[in-house]
Amino acid sequence: MKIPIIQVGKDKDFSQHLKTKVHHVFVFIQVFEREGGIQSYVKDIFRAYLALNEPFYAEVFLLRDSPSCFNPFESESLKFHYFKSKSPLLERVRMAMALLFHLLRQRPQHVFCGHVNLAPLVGLLCQPLGIPYTVMTHGKEVWQPLPTSIKSSLQKAAQIWTVSRYTRQVACAVNQLDPNQVKLLPCAVNGNDFTPGTKSTALLERYGLTKTKVLMTVARLWSGDIYKGVDVTIQALPQIADVFPEVKYLVIGRGDDQPRLAKLAEDLGVGDRVIFAGFVPTEELAEHYRLADAYVMPSQEGFGIVYLEAMACGVPVLSGDADGSADPLQDGKLGWRVPHRDPNAVAAACIEILKGDDPRCDGQWLREQAIALFGIDAFQKRLKEQLLSLVNSP
C-alpha cells in the first residue's frame, strides 16, 4: 500500500470562499532548543503553514523554549509565546494560564496539540469551551497503553494526526481509538537540503574511508535506544566483510551506549571497521550521507525520516520490517526491510545492496520517488487538505 500524494484541487473553490482568517492554536513542548525527529517534523509544519497562501493565522505556545531561541518562522501568520523557566512546574502553570486566557478571549477555530503528554491539558481547556482539538502523535509514545487521562483526551479529540500506518494501527489497537479518527500526515524531506553528490575527499580522509565500501547509520546512541539496530549491524559486519573485505561502518550520533557498541565491535574482531563520528550538525548531514554506499538502520521507527534523507541523497536503504518504515520504504519497493534483530538478515541484505545489481540501488530513481512522495510540496498538500477538512467539518 502506497502513501498517496493528496490532490487538493477539489478544495480550491472552498478555500477561495474563506472570507475571514481562520484562527488556529498550536501547543508544543519544545521545538527550537532541542534537535530531533519531532522537532524537524514540527518545523516542517511551520514551513508548510506559512507557504499555504490561505487565510490562516496561528498562535504557537512553546512550553520549554525561550524568547532568545533562533526562530525563523515568526511572522504575521505565526505568532509565538515562550514559557521556558527554571521550574518545570512554573512553566507549565504559566503556559496553562496563558492558553486558557487566549482560548477565552479569542475562541480559535481549532487547537493542535503537539504531543500526547500535553493532551490532558489541551483537552481540559478546550472541551468546556466547545473548541475542537487535534493531537499529533509520532511513534513509540503511543505504541503502549497510555494513562487514562491521556487516552481519554485522545478519544475525545476531533482528530489524531500520526506519521505512519503502523503507528495508527498499533495506537488504535492498544488505546481503543477509532481508526477513522486518525489521519496520516507523514514526515517530509527537503530535497534542496538533501541532494546526491560525489563523496567528499576531506571526509573520506577524516574517517579513513578511502577505497572502502561504506555502511552508515545516523542515530542516537543511547542505552534506551538499542532498537536502532547499531549493535545488530556490527554483528553483521563479519559476514559482510567475507564478501566485501573493504567494508567499513560509519556511525553518526552520540550517547551513553557508544562504549558498549565499541566493545562489541572489538570482541567480534571488527573494531577497525567501525568509525564513531559523534554528533554531526544538521547542515553537514547531506555531505555525510553521500559517503554511504548503503544506509543501514534495522530499527523500530514511528516513521524514520533518516531513510528519506538517505534516499534523497541517492543512497539505498535498509530498515526493519515491523514498524513505520514501511511507509518511507513503500513496503519494500524503495528499499530492503528485514527482521530488525537478525544479524544474518542484515548481512544478506547489505551484501545485496553493495553488489548494486538491484533496481533499488538506482540513486536517481530513489531520489525521484522520495521527493515525489514525501517532499515538502507533498507535505504541504497534505497539511492543506487536513486543515481545510477541519474548517469544513461540522
Score class of each variant (00 low, 15 high):
M1V: 13
I3W: 00
P4M: 09
P4V: 03
P4F: 06
D13K: 12
D13L: 15
S15F: 07
Q16C: 02
L18E: 03
K19G: 04
V22P: 00
V22C: 06
H23M: 10
V25W: 00
F26A: 02
V27P: 01
V27L: 02
I29V: 11
Q30F: 02
E35A: 14
E35K: 12
G37I: 02
I38M: 13
K43H: 07
K43R: 15
A48D: 05
A48E: 01
A51H: 08
P55W: 05
F56C: 03
E59W: 04
F61D: 02
L62R: 08
L62C: 11
L63F: 02
C69Q: 09
F73H: 06
F73P: 00
E74L: 06
S77K: 14
S77D: 11
K79D: 09
K79G: 07
K84A: 15
K86Q: 12
L89H: 07
L89K: 11
E91S: 15
E91C: 15
P108R: 06
H110E: 10
H115T: 09
L124Y: 13
L124C: 12
P128M: 08
P128I: 03
I131G: 06
P132I: 09
T134F: 04
M136T: 01
M136C: 11
T137K: 01
H138R: 07
H138N: 11
G139M: 08
E141Y: 04
L146H: 08
T148Y: 09
S149E: 11
S152F: 10
A157R: 05
T162L: 04
V170L: 09
A173Q: 14
V174L: 03
Q181R: 14
L184F: 10
D193T: 13
F194Y: 15
T195N: 03
S200R: 08
T201P: 10
L209G: 07
K211L: 02
K211P: 01
K211M: 04
T212R: 13
T212E: 02
V214F: 05
V214E: 02
R220H: 06
G224S: 15
G224E: 14
Y227H: 14
G229N: 02
L237A: 09
P238L: 07
P238E: 10
Q239H: 13
D242I: 02
K248V: 00
L250F: 11
I252M: 13
G255W: 09
R260G: 14
A262Q: 15
K263Q: 15
L264R: 11
L264M: 14
L264E: 10
A265K: 05
L268T: 05
G269D: 07
V270D: 05
I275C: 12
P281F: 10
E284M: 12
P298N: 08
I305H: 01
L308F: 03
A312H: 07
A312T: 07
V317L: 05
S319Q: 04
A322E: 12
A326M: 12
P328C: 06
L329S: 05
L329K: 01
D331A: 13
R337C: 11
V338F: 03
R341P: 00
P343K: 04
A349L: 05
C350N: 09
E352K: 12
K355T: 15
K355Q: 15
D358H: 12
P359A: 06
R360G: 04
G363S: 06
Q364S: 12
I371K: 01
F374H: 11
I376N: 07
A378Q: 08
A378L: 06
K381F: 04
R382L: 00
E385C: 07
N392I: 03
N392D: 12
